[in-house]
Nucleic acid binder design. Structure first.
Lengths: 94, 94
DNA sequence: GTACTATGTCGCCGTATGACGACATTCGAA
DNA sequence: TTCGAATGTCGTCATACGGCGACATAGTAC
């Protein structure tokens, strides 16, 4: 499932919530937000706080993965293409 | 790359930005936000708006995938486990 | 020494977020 | 019909978001 908009997020949240047999109030309780928040987010509110979205996904047992070419923040590849990244990494380590 | 917190998000955003050779101002311009916003998000601000985060990821060419067991909102599997989901789908269609 | 760029931080401001409470609607049961 | 549960919507409030402008630091080039 590719996520590109807040609406996508809302759709998956609603879908997983129902799959788990949870009500909006039950999910809200798990996340630590109000039922209102769940309603708004499921409608696709784009200005919702990303931290709460992450908590909601976590509460639903949904994992968020990053793709797009590079491995992300983990330079496990061992082949950084930007000298800046190397320098920055060296700085952070030392 | 598994994302669980806003800090993870900030790390990958910063990482990809540098990989693309973009400055904070340049990225902010692409997303349509202020440089300030980029600084805060890269620090891991959990209350940033999810819509802007999505735009940032998009601007960086990063794809956001969902995992966690079920296929998500796409019932392509054809095997819904919850009767509620089926009923809801039927309602939406009719 | 000066100038330029990239980055991090501070204060002020208009506006929206998220919480709370209440009501209406839909669906199922007796 | 009445009762109960889940959901969607409205109005109000304290707080924070995000934008703007300015300053300080670090690295580079002349």
């Amino acid at each position: 499932m590719l996520i590109r908009t807040a609406r996508d997020l809302g759709a998956v949240i609603r879908d997983h919530r129902r799959r788990l047999g949870l009500g909006q109030q039950a999910l809200a309780d798990r996340i630590g937000v109000s039922r209102q928040w769940v309603v708004e987010v499921e409608k696709g509110k784009p200005r919702a706080e990303v931290g709460l979205i992450l908590r909601a996904l976590d509460a639903l047992g949904v994992a968020l993965l990053l793709g797009g070419g590079t491995s992300g923040a983990d330079d496990q590849d061992g082949a950084a293409t930007d000298i800046d990244a190397i320098v920055d990494g060296a700085r952070g380590a030392g």
